[in-house]
Design a protein around this nucleic acid. Structure first.
Lengths: 232, 232
DNA sequence: AGGCGTTTCATACACTTGTTTGAACATAAC
DNA sequence: GTTATGTTCAAACAAGTGTATGAAACGCCT
């Protein structure tokens, strides 16, 4: 019975902490939702803070089990791998019917990092990041510098995260356009993949850098990709 | 002297609210920082909540004055306009020496929208969004659908916002790579512009959609851009 | 100077917060 | 049954919260 109340507190804490943040959430609230006595949280966790830390940990641990990492056949093209990766991330961020409170916890952790931040990144974020880097390795020249690879990776996940972080702003900006389905997970996944593959093209021919951007859109050089041939 | 304390409260409230959020920030804290009496906030604002709303409003109002919107010569190429736009956004998000607490307020508002959200978007976000759409209009075919234009715009600002939202995660992921300067505002601006112009290329030849992404990177068709010619 | 509306101040008021306490309860070993 | 150990419970605690109050101080007009 002891472990039971412990788990009940942890599971109840997730969505509540996600909704209100650490401050803004009361232990009474959590205890009521978990249907346990008020003193239980201090008996089992010692303090509200360690309860929070354990909650964050468990939340992403369970989330990782529930929605597994991206996977693809061994002979998939790198483009398809990227598409699957983007789709997986978006599903993790936006999907799952209910509300996706786990990612709200993650967002809060991004804005206001606590001690839960570092293990979260190492256990939960870095594996996905490395997976994306592996895909990018197939799409970028071998000579591409690590920092450039990283920035490209951030450009891709940044597009995905935007629809989670700024979802309220997006809704206000586009009005009722969302009802057209243009912002479904499938459409967004397709769009981001397409945009990113285009963006990758700009890094396929390694240039010194930063000199390939002033070409006018009307003309296109023979390689077809933006290049450094025309500095205005 | 009355307006003076009013303003002092508002200005002191900005960074404090940004740091601790609405909950997590005490009126006493703000009054101490503003060096005014505790009762002043209720005398001048009526409640903590309306103080918060007015604080958010003033913060972005002053921010908008301090770092003006992107501007370019009339004959600038759309590519250059995009570069300037991205640079301006990044400067607004990451620049300004101190800490940029205004954007933290904005981030909080994104995650946990309050009544301050709607006017914030209309007065502060939408003008920039429209400006970006104007630039994109020069880079995309006239036939491009509005929803596609919007998603492209989000792909661009998403890349920028990522370095503000996930800055802690970015730091943890890249280790001390930041010290190389690869994540300076200038470098990031250059990278995002380059990546985005590449991404835009993928939308230059309007395809039905979603069929242009499986081309293998080694071969390239004559137009040079990714296209719908090969479905695997 | 004197009166008056406005603003400041110290203080107090409910109320909520996380945490503690000590008794009641359970369960198993002997 | 008795003891021992681990767990729950209602109640209370001290500290901190937003807000209210009434007196004091100020500035300004006549």
């Amino acid at each position: 019975m002891a472990d039971d109340t412990r788990l009940r507190i942890l599971r109840a804490g997730g969505p509540i902490f996600a909704g209100g943040g650490f401050e803004g959430t009361t232990v009474r609230e959590i205890c009521a939702a978990a249907d346990v006595n008020l003193a239980s949280v201090n008996y089992h966790f010692g303090s509200k803070e360690t309860l929070y830390l354990e909650t964050v940990q468990l939340a992403h641990q369970e989330k990782l089990l529930r929605v597994p990492p991206a996977a693809w056949p061994a002979d998939a093209s790198p483009q398809d791998k990227l598409r699957v990766f983007v789709g997986t991330i978006l599903n993790r961020l936006l999907g799952e019917g209910d509300i996706g409170w786990e990612t709200r916890l993650l967002m809060r952790e991004m804005i206001h990092p606590t001690h839960a931040c570092r293990p979260l990144v190492e256990d939960y974020i870095r594996p996905q990041f490395d997976q994306l880097l592996d895909v990018l390795a197939e799409l970028l020249p071998d000579t591409t510098e690590p920092s450039v690879r990283h920035r490209v990776a951030f450009s891709i996940v940044g597009q995905c995260l935007h629809y989670r972080f700024a979802s309220e702003f997006v809704s206000l900006l586009i009005g009722d356009e969302r009802s057209t389905g243009a912002y479904s997970i499938e459409e967004l996944s397709e769009h981001i993949t397409r945009f990113s593959l285009g963006g990758l093209e700009a890094f396929r021919n390694e240039q010194p850098r930063s000199t390939c951007l002033t070409e006018r859109p009307e003309k296109r050089n023979e390689s077809g990709t933006v290049s450094a041939t025309s500095i205005h």
